[in-house]
Write a protein that binds this DNA or RNA. Structure first.
Length: 263
DNA sequence: ATGGTAGCGCTGCTA
């Protein structure tokens, strides 16, 4: 199974690139974040034409998550378990069973300024993600939690840790909350396949030529439970997609993360 | 030099 995750920064603005990328890379399951659209606007037919089923959870111009699969898409859950779908304020988690694995597509809150109410909400959201795993997944199950975590797990996951002193995405509480999610029984397989850094980065600020200066962060992660992680045969970040297209089409500020699992 | 870019959508917020 080829599993991928990609924060597309508006699926409406990026659809053409996403279609081209899918046709080229041929993922079996693709998790999308920041679709920035309501369910009614989701281009389900475009993915069907490529041979994929899809599920989307979006409620407006921010956030929005989707799972695209050509190996089945069952038992879709919108939001956290026990959450009234009509009461979900922000669309940040979508789960489905694809190809015998429980896929969770997540878009963790950014957190903005350390210590702000948004930062505290981010920590609470990550704690709730651990609760979600405890409550909805059996130990030993095939589980993949993929998405934009807005946390750089280690110092090698930012271009220059000395420039991040106390900054959002690298603070101890954020990393501890992420570690608690991993502690359910998940492995950061891209870091295992690529142990050296800095990088591989998955996000670069649009401003100031950050991409070309190599000033990025690794915040888009594929976290796999043991039965899936055991079968990983390769993992990478597709930096090519982050380059500007020949037609001048603007890329997302995130690159896709791709994991191959022999299963 | 306290900026810069992108998306949404039309004013300023979010990232």
């Amino acid at each position: 199974m080829r599993l991928a995750t990609w924060n597309v920064n508006s699926l409406k603005a990026r659809l053409s690139r996403v279609e081209t990328w899918i046709a080229s890379v041929q993922p079996d399951v693709l998790c999308l974040q920041e679709t920035k659209m309501a369910d009614a606007m989701f281009p389900e037919a475009a993915f069907a034409e490529l041979g994929y089923e899809s599920a989307h959870h979006g409620n407006g111009r921010w956030n929005g998550v989707a799972i695209i699969s050509r190996v089945g898409l069952e038992d879709v859950r919108t939001g956290f378990h026990g959450e009234d779908p009509d009461e979900v304020a922000e669309s940040r988690i979508l789960s489905a069973t694809c190809g015998g694995a429980r896929i969770m597509c997540v878009y963790v809150p950014n957190g903005r300024v350390v210590g702000s109410e948004f930062y505290e909400a981010k920590l609470a959201w990550l704690r709730r993600l651990r609760v979600e795993l405890d409550a909805t997944c059996e130990a030993g199950a095939r589980v993949a939690v993929c998405g934009d975590f807005n946390v750089a797990p280690g110092d090698l996951d930012v271009w220059d840790i000395t420039k991040f002193d106390g900054a959002t995405h690298v603070t101890g509480p954020e990393r501890s909350a992420l570690a608690s999610v991993l502690g359910w029984g998940l492995r950061d397989v891209v870091r295992e396949v690529i142990p050296d850094g800095p990088g591989p980065f998955s996000w670069w600020d649009y401003r100031g030529g950050a991409f070309h200066k190599g000033e990025g962060m690794r915040i888009d992660l594929a976290l796999l439970s043991e039965p899936l992680a055991r079968g990983v045969t390769g993992a990478c970040v597709d930096r090519e997609e982050r380059k500007k297209g020949v037609s001048g089409e603007v890329p997302s500020d995130h690159a896709p993360v791709v994991v191959d699992i022999d299963a």
